[in-house]
Amino acid sequence: MKLIFAGTPEFAASALQALIDAGHDIALVLTQPDRPAGRGMKLKASPVKTLALAHGLPVSQPLTLKTAEAQAEIAAVGAEVMVVAAYGLILPKAVLEMPTRGCLNIHASLLPRWRGAAPIHRAIEAGDAETGVTIMQMDVGLDTGDMLLTVREPIHADDSTGSLHDRLAAQGAQAMVAALAQLDALSPQPQPAEGVTYAEKIGKAEAQLDWSLPAEVLHRKIRAFNPFPGASTLAGGEALKIWQAQLADGAGAPGEVLAADADGVRIACGSGALLATQLQAAGGKRLAAREFLAGHSLPARLGE
């Protein structure tokens, strides 16, 4: 098919590569403008732009799709379908109606659960047993369109957002290829009215660990906020990130460091305890507990 592809991060790049491999005619790639990144804050192209240019595909980076100029560029393509994956810009009604067969979105949840910006993070944080990918016919609502195809995926006890993201990106890419291949045979299904939840965008303030919460809740937060923004606490007034942890036995005042050895840092929670096994001091690198403790000391209590 003649396609327009709209996407920005690695999740979307996986889908673009699959569409290229499947032989589709990618007539235009839409992606977010280059953003400052890294310590030097130099402009950096999105993963989708980098991939598109490597394949010689035309790229456009409008700030918005609401302008006449951006809409004229899209209309001129005469695409059959626009494929959207984590693009980051709202598609106005006029744009949604331009492709002759509509706009299809790859959404990383089993809709209607976890509509919105951060479905992978929120599924792990909530303790969901499974999630998946939904191929959806887009409409003017926020992830409210009819469903064309779903793929289910279990959430493992040790999954982080990073590990689950990679599996869902691969599944979403293949699901979109499959959906396009059988588009005439697919029957759009309205989303159920019950079971709607919203995956709000992750704020950095959320990643601050509250040690009065149960260990199970904090364990899910650590996994959900890895790799972004990273679960954090205070250690003697200095920021400390905890990237990996396990549920552990132990009791004490919330935030109390019960033990610190080669196995990890055992921390008391509101109920139960966590064993932090990968930590990062401010300005430092992620380190296994053994390496971290060789170069850093910890106060008797975290969170202050």
Rank of each mutant, 00 (worst) to 15 (best):
A259P: 12
V257Y: 12
E125R: 00
S232F: 02
A75E: 14
S297N: 10
A282Q: 12
L3Q: 04
G116W: 04
K241F: 10
W211L: 00
M82C: 12
V217C: 00
G88Y: 05
V151R: 14
G295T: 11
I202F: 08
A94R: 10
G283V: 08
A157E: 13
A235Y: 03
Q71V: 05
P92M: 06
G272K: 06
L91W: 12
S46Y: 09
E216S: 00
G23Y: 09
A205F: 04
L57M: 01
S46N: 10
G132K: 04
P9G: 14
L240V: 03
A282H: 11
G303W: 00
K221S: 05
E97L: 01
L57W: 01
T277V: 14
Q191S: 04
V151Y: 08
M136I: 13
A94W: 12
Q61S: 13
A13N: 04
A118S: 12
V151E: 13
H156K: 15
P33Q: 02
L302M: 02
H107K: 06
K49R: 11
T134E: 05
D21V: 12
F292Q: 03
I202P: 01
G203A: 15
G78S: 07
I26C: 06
D21G: 13
G264Y: 01
H296F: 01
I26H: 02
A18W: 07
Q182S: 15
A18N: 01
M147W: 14
Q61V: 13
T8M: 11
F292L: 05
V59E: 09
L53I: 10
P92S: 05
W114Q: 04
S60F: 11
M147T: 10
T50P: 15
T197A: 05
H55C: 04
A27Q: 02
G264I: 05
E256S: 12
Q278V: 15
A207Q: 04
G270W: 05
H55I: 03
I222F: 00
M82Q: 09
P229Y: 06
L104D: 11
D25S: 07
A205T: 14
V151A: 03
V81W: 13
G132R: 07
I120S: 08
E125H: 09
G116F: 13
G284M: 02
G237R: 05
L30T: 11
T233N: 03
L293Y: 04
K44R: 15
A37S: 15
R115G: 14
H121W: 06
L164K: 04
V217S: 01
L148Y: 11
H165C: 09
G23K: 07
S14A: 15
